[in-house]
Amino acid sequence: MNSVAFIVIAIFTLAAGLAAATLQKLMHAALSFAVTFVGIAAFFFLLGAEFVGLVQVFVYIGAVAVLIVFTILLTRRDVEKDRGFNWSGAFIAIAVFGGLIWAILKTQSLSVAAPEIPALTVKRIGEVLMTNYVWPLQCVGLLLTAALVGALILVMEEKQ
């Protein structure tokens, strides 16, 4: 693992995340959200989980970001800008961050270097998914079907 790549990806991801959390224009914030998820996918590639990185790109940038942009366009008449910023939320977020950083820095066993591992192939993921994880896989399939039907029912026009 390369530490230069780590620093570049970390700055890129966190800057895009902060932009998505604070930008006033809705469309700009949605696009920075997509950029944040490119950065997280890059982290997954850096950590050697290429399959999860690709799934992240397909699901978040291909589907969720487009869905969010469509929802912004459909509800546009309301507000073009997100006015009003709740400062107590910022204080809570900083307090949680401080607590997490304190816990991470206090734990001694975390400062380990990455061991050498064999590459995780898609073949291996497929094998595990079809043997050890076949019941969770079926449950996720059922959950996705239920979510699809639920979303359709929610947005259907009500009959008078």
């Binding site: 966190l14 995340g17 604070t22 400062w87 939320g89 910022a90 809570i92 977020a93």
Partner: peptide, 11 residues
Amino acid sequence: LFCIGLLAALS
């Protein structure tokens, strides 16, 4: 990243 998300969700 978690705290940036928390900031967005709360504020």
